[in-house]
Nucleic acid binder design. Structure first.
Length: 496
DNA sequence: TTGTGTTTTATTGCCTCC
DNA sequence: GGAGGCAATAAAACACAA
């Protein structure tokens, strides 16, 4: 009797704990979810299932998480809109917000959203993010949001190269026709034919308003920077030369000459980055492990292909990304980033770390590094998303969506970032490889490398898997001539 | 250490669409 | 009617100041 009652109570306990106690998602899970969310705000059931399987969660949890995440985004959007509204009034740039943004007053957004854009149709392609304001975009940029979906005028390398990246990695398969994102060299086709048709090529209505908001943001950033953007000159007074032959070859680290360092000397000395590079990855949660195991099993299915000839291979990327990823094992050590650093976290943690460090990486590296960095302090991500957009000097590097007058600037930024990314990636890789590590350090690095790989694939694999299916399907259906043409077209579009 | 505020997660009910 | 999404709410987990 006693035993049974004890058992019962224990069972109750367990079941209560199971049911009642909420369980925090592990950093890897969060990272994967966030990454996935960045790509697909409204995952299909299939996606959810795959995600759930990959992350060791239930579909319900996945659904719930996405639901809450969307709410969070909405809330943020609202806050940002309010914040921007104040700012806009002061700068006098934007007046017509309500008409375009479809602000929700606790639920009314439904109608607004549907009225201006069908979120389900649009959000999976990142268009939804156009509703986000600067701070959000800074964050989104970190997460490599594809923003230039409408083809409005964003020539930023961040978005395009990111998309190339995604496509080359097969990470955005769901809403894309396979042939579109399967371009051999990661060309960037129009993201969503539907969306493109819907949105048109000219910003109007919603996008127009958004552009105005962005303009205000740009204005604010400029004010913060206190420096002139030269219409045709280099970014922020940074001069850069045309890409010399052999620029992508391994170079010795020369941070002093790095444009970003020039622009942001402080960031290059960030102690967190320094620490991040040193600490091995210690994130070892059960669920993480489970997820990683799943990923491991799937890794054999998805060979990593470097779609950027002349760029770093995956292992190369790892050398950096591991360092970043490895730093996640001490929330405490990063707590300074929560409250004290909370202002502009999106731009500090997002830009601060990732920006200057990101600058040294190729796009692929950036993607990896982001994940790795996310792991450094997942709280940063979570919390940072609640940060109000406070102008910060680090925003300078955020990918502020551009108005017409920003095109030249963004184009330059695109080129420059690309250039820097390639150069620095090589540098960092060479640093790590040529640093003459001690054997155990190498071991640690390799181990972190594996960890990072696993974590990276947490995100990659579910998408990639479905990508694979879609490809197989579409290849079977697709006329060979069409696929070839498509390939040729898209590959040519990559040329810069 | 504790109290308080914030964030995240889980649950539930309602609404809309198919 | 079922499925999916949104919003409200509660509660746990977390961050931080006193």
């Amino acid at each position: 009797m006693e035993e049974s009652s004890e058992l019962q109570s224990e069972e109750n306990k367990v079941s209560n704990e199971k049911n009642k106690k909420r369980k925090l998602k592990t950093p890897a899970q969060l990272k994967a979810l966030e990454d996935f969310y960045n790509e697909h705000k409204y995952p299909t059931e299939e996606m959810k299932l795959v995600l759930a399987e990959e992350l060791g969660l239930t579909e319900k949890q996945i659904s719930g998480w996405f639901c809450h995440r969307r709410l969070k985004d909405k809330r943020l959007m609202k806050d940002e809109a309010v914040a921007n509204g104040r700012q806009d009034r002061s700068s006098g740039v934007i007046q017509d917000r309500g008409s375009g943004l479809g602000q929700d007053s606790c639920g009314s957004s439904k109608h607004a959203d549907h009225r201006y854009l069908d979120p389900k149709e649009v959000e999976s392609h990142g268009l939804y993010n156009h509703e986000l304001s600067v701070a959000d975009m800074t964050h989104r940029r970190r997460n490599h949001y594809p923003e230039n979906v409408s083809g409005v005028d964003d020539t930023s390398s961040e978005s395009s190269s990111f998309l190339q990246e995604r496509f080359s990695q097969g990470q955005d398969p769901y809403d894309m026709e396979p042939s579109r994102h399967l371009t051999p060299n990661g060309a960037l086709p129009p993201l969503n034919p539907k969306g493109a048709v819907k949105m048109g090529h000219k910003p109007s209505g919603y996008l127009k308003v958004k552009g105005e908001i962005e303009h205000a943001a740009i204005t604010a950033v400029r004010k913060q920077l206190g420096r002139h953007y030269l219409e045709d000159g280099p970014l922020l007074g940074i001069e850069f030369d045309p890409l010399p032959p052999g620029a992508f070859e391994c170079q010795t680290a020369d941070t002093a000459n790095e444009p970003y360092s020039v622009a942001n000397p402080l960031l290059s000395n960030s102690p967190e980055i320094f620490a991040a590079k040193r600490q091995p990855s210690l994130s070892s949660d059960k669920q993480d492990k489970k997820a990683c195991q799943n990923i491991k099993q799937r890794q054999s299915l998805y060979g990593y292909t470097n779609n950027f000839p002349g760029r770093n291979t995956f292992p190369d990327l790892y050398e950096d990304s591991t360092g970043e990823a490895s730093a996640y094992n001490s929330n405490k050590s990063h707590r300074m980033s929560t409250k004290h650093g909370v202002e502009g976290m999106r731009s500090d943690s997002a830009s601060n770390h990732s920006d200057h460090y990101e600058e040294k990486l190729t796009v692929k590296q950036k993607t990896l590094m982001l994940h790795g960095y996310d792991n450094i302090n997942p709280k940063n991500i979570q919390r940072s998303e609640h940060v109000k957009s406070k102008p910060s000097s680090s925003i300078h590097n955020s990918r502020v969506p551009m108005d017409t007058e920003e095109r030249g600037l963004s184009a330059r930024m695109a080129k420059e970032e690309m250039f820097k990314g390639n150069r620095k990636a090589k540098n960092t890789y060479c640093d790590v490889e040529g640093a003459g590590m001690l054997s155990n350090e190498i071991m640690v690095a390799k181990r972190a490398k594996v960890d990072m790989l696993q974590q990276y694939n947490v995100k990659k694999s579910p998408v990639a898997e479905m990508e694979l299916k879609k490809i197989q399907r579409s290849v079977a259906e697709m006329p060979s001539s069409f696929s070839e043409d498509e390939t040729a077209d898209t590959s040519s579009s990559l040329d810069y």
